[in-house]
Design a protein around this nucleic acid. Structure first.
Lengths: 269, 269
DNA sequence: ATATATGTATCATATGTCGGCACAACATTG
DNA sequence: CAATGTTGTGCCGACATATGATACATATAT
């Protein structure tokens, strides 16, 4: 079965199709296939298992595993089984850490800015705060309340609450007893927060009714990894007095759609 | 410069050392090196950059990138730059998913956090380091010293020493001569380490008296497979000045009990 | 005991990867 | 604007490299 592997070599036919595939290095391909397969296994796999699964020779599989092992991507656990190490995980983690979110979100932020002329935020969570990593200033004469690099409590701004709603299971514990009060509208009880979360989930966006700064409202929507974990949020912020001009629903839909599109862009890799 | 690349071929010398290295597939090695390097880059890298960085031919680099691209691990973003995709992340993610220690340990971590309000760690071994795979930040204003994904030498933190004590037979060989010194209290001799291990076994928890960071102490306990092999450890870390407030014994008992309960939960699968 | 798994080692061969070179598309220089 | 230095990409012959067959030692099953 091994000869069937590469499928279309190049010798055979001149190939009708225009786009010929760009010739891949088979060793690297097989190695990554192995790593892929191993990462999907709960308990680890053996050489024979893997060779059958991928249609490779045992010798070949063994040597590739040997390579992966000395490189640290794979280890031989108990019972002689091979399994992927956390080095694999750490590399993937770096991809997330180095994601250029401002670049990914730029178009969507621009779109909302053009539609509202209000202040647009891109924020990431950090412990129980959110940090603004990008923003587009309002064109209105009013000054902005935050700058890039600035922080806000996660439980009382639109972007933060959108992230909470998405990641609640992993945040619930930490939030308990940490809901500081900033304005008369700040949500300070876990029960009230859960009600708000439910509304956020239902609407697809979070609404800040002036829970951090008196008179400053906004909406926010999460940006999620393919597994649903929120890593950022996009939001719009404005004076409460300007809210009627836009309508809460419209502002909510804007960030919701933007968040979904950015999330989709992340996923299509 | 290309010929210097692989450094130690094999022709040269029979190599004095006993353990000859197990001959790695160079294509796979280079490909993974590329992926590694790309995952560490924020904005993406170009072919020439990468070829210089890794000491490879441009042709070679280009073909490897081509392969990684068609396999979906890399993409060409705007500006012709290559960057790692989320497929890389997804694979790494599965490794953790298939071994959901944070989930298994969550309750116990929470319990200790509530009891101490200090920083709680969940760590796994990787070679002669430990990697933090989950943590609960201290509620105190003090800064955190490590992040998820961060590393520490296995022989001088509480979690690491707990793992050593559990797996000493299989680690002894590797540790010999690898006990780097970080503070005045770091254990640097195998003999002293064995004394410490004995104490750890007797107490059921390891104690770090500031052996990695000056003034930062902690306790750690192993999380073991049914056969007794430690795959992780849970620990608490705090400033030495706060130790009297809790008492070493209490902190030790907390992690010891937590480790035992998680171990028990692993066993009942 | 025999029998069928497994993981690992060796080796000759041909396969697949390599480096060199060449080219087009931009950038940057004068 | 020509000259010069980048860049990413395509091609090809040569040789090193990864390959499959074969062999063997150990483990689990019959």
């Amino acid at each position: 079965m091994q000869k069937t592997s590469k499928s279309l070599s190049k010798k055979s036919a001149p190939e009708s199709s225009v786009a010929r595939e760009p010739k891949v290095d088979s060793t690297l391909t097989k190695g990554l296939l192995l790593l892929d397969s191993l990462s999907a296994a709960s308990g680890g796999k053996g050489v024979s298992d893997l060779s059958r699964e991928l249609g490779l020779t045992k010798s070949n599989t063994f040597r590739l595993l040997q390579t992966l092992t000395t490189l640290g991507y794979v280890q031989r656990g108990e019972g002689k089984l091979y399994s992927a190490t956390l080095k694999t995980w750490r590399i993937g983690q770096r991809v997330i850490d180095n994601l250029d979110l401002p670049e990914l979100a730029r178009d969507e932020m621009r779109r909302i800015a053009d539609a509202t002329h209000e202040t647009i935020y891109l924020a990431v969570p950090e412990n129980l705060s959110i940090v603004y990593i990008d923003m587009i200033d309002s064109l209105r004469p009013i000054r902005t309340w935050n700058r890039i690099g600035g922080r806000a409590p996660i439980h009382c701004v639109g972007t933060g609450k959108a992230i909470i709603a998405a990641n609640y299971p992993s945040l619930r514990g930490a939030l308990k007893g940490e809901l500081a009060k900033y304005t008369s509208r700040t949500i300070t009880s876990l029960a009230a927060l859960e009600v708000d979360i439910e509304a956020t989930r239902k609407n697809g966006y979070a609404f800040d009714s002036g829970e951090f700064r008196e008179g400053v409202v906004g909406t926010g929507a999460a940006i999620c990894l393919p597994n649903g974990f929120a890593i950022a949020a996009i939001g719009v912020s404005l004076l409460e007095t300007d809210l009627p001009e836009h309508g809460r629903e419209k502002l909510g839909r804007l960030v919701k759609d933007a968040g979904e599109r950015i999330t989709a862009r992340l996923a299509r890799n």
